[in-house]
């Protein structure tokens, strides 16, 4: 099927070479006066994703993540560069590409608000011309995996955010796409829903070898799902590699929050762990994200009257900010929310 996309052993299912997207922005500068200037949302990005890879695509707001995804799906036409998905140029052959990709926009549903969930799936069945047997099989499997069986006859407007997200994921996968794009798939979901979505994506990738590209603000999404991370900032690809490497280059830290039985002076922690904040009996300790918390916890538990504890992951912005600016003290990492 896809012979021209194959190069040697690797199969660059998604290929970008020097891709740019320039927007012309007109800004009002006075009465009837407008100033035009060009904004380079994506600036000469090149990467390749092999079939079956699961890649996290992260970066601060406005970095160009969504713009890249929109070019990959054919929504936007690149201003320059070469872009291929499954050997297809997305913006030129959007309809042909649509049969081979699945897209989930975390913040906008493609389901029919006033109709039962199953009706949206029936539309996909016919619009994508999915063979009946395959449709039945896929629907049964997806509905079971995402635990939507009892909700198929419920109008979409009555579903919770988490249920709707799972419903959207099913809709995006009924036609067996080879690649799934997820734009903030866990945004606004509760812990249980997040876990369900992640577990499902892991299975999908393992069993069906579906290529997955996801953008997220949640570092745990990346940690639990992606072997590879790409970081984009100001339209440029600034990191492409394993998540561990990102932590290293960002020297990111996790935070251990401990509640002691009473107010005590700062805990004498073994370096590089250190106390960064004390508030009554509660103390915050920062330690490298690459190290296990177990040793530190054991030591504190042995020497201090420990009542409760929690570990906070560094947030993605902080990790990226550190990596970009080499600024390890500018922003408090994993700042706990009171």
């Amino acid at each position: 099927m896809d012979t021209n996309g194959r190069v040697g052993a690797v199969d660059p299912f998604i290929e970008l070479d020097g891709v740019e997207k320039v927007f012309e922005v007109r800004r009002k500068t006075g009465f009837m006066r407008r100033e035009r200037h060009r904004v380079r949302a994506v600036d000469s990005i090149s990467f390749a994703v092999a079939r079956g890879e699961m890649v996290g695509y992260i970066g601060p707001n406005g970095a160009g993540k969504s713009t890249t995804i929109k070019m990959l799906t054919g929504i936007l036409t690149p201003s320059a560069g070469r872009l291929r998905v499954a050997g297809i140029e997305p913006s030129r052959e959007r309809t042909r590409l649509a049969h081979r990709i699945g897209v989930v926009f975390g913040q906008r549903t493609t389901l029919w608000w006033d109709l039962p969930l199953i009706d949206s799936y029936r539309l996909m069945h016919r619009m994508y011309r999915i063979p009946d047997a395959r449709y039945r099989e896929n629907l049964d499997r997806l509905v079971e995996l995402l635990e939507l069986g009892s909700l198929l006859d419920v109008p979409v407007r009555q579903l919770s955010l988490g249920q709707r997200m799972r419903g959207d994921i099913v809709a995006a996968l009924l036609h067996d796409p080879e690649v799934l794009y997820l734009d903030e798939p866990t945004i606004g979901l509760d812990v249980v829903s997040k876990a369900k979505v992640r577990e499902f994506l892991r299975q999908l990738n393992a069993e069906r070898a579906t290529t997955v590209l996801l953008t997220t603000h949640d570092l745990q999404d990346i940690e639990q799902l992606c072997s590879r991370v790409m970081v984009i900032d100001h339209g440029r690809l600034v990191y492409d590699g394993a998540l561990a490497g990102l932590h290293e280059s960002g020297e990111s830290e996790r935070t251990l929050v401990v509640d002691l039985a009473r107010e005590l002076p700062p805990i004498d922690a073994p370096p590089p762990a250190r106390v960064v904040r004390v508030e009554g009996p509660r103390q915050w300790l920062a330690f490298p994200a690459s190290e296990s918390a177990a040793g530190l916890v054991a030591r504190i538990a042995a020497e201090y009257p420990l009542v409760d504890l929690s570990v906070r992951e560094p947030d993605i912005e902080a990790v990226i900010a550190k990596m970009l600016h080499g600024d390890s003290h500018g922003k408090e990492v994993g700042r706990p929310v009171p």
């Binding site: 929109k70 799906t73 054919g74 929504i75 959007r94 309809t95 042909r96 649509a98 049969h99 990709i101 897209v103 926009f105 913040q107 906008r108 493609t110 619009m127 994508y128």
Partner: peptide
Amino acid sequence: RDGSFDTLLVRPAP
């Protein structure tokens, strides 16, 4: 404006 036009562009239909 609300961005939902995007969702029409990823469907296999004119």
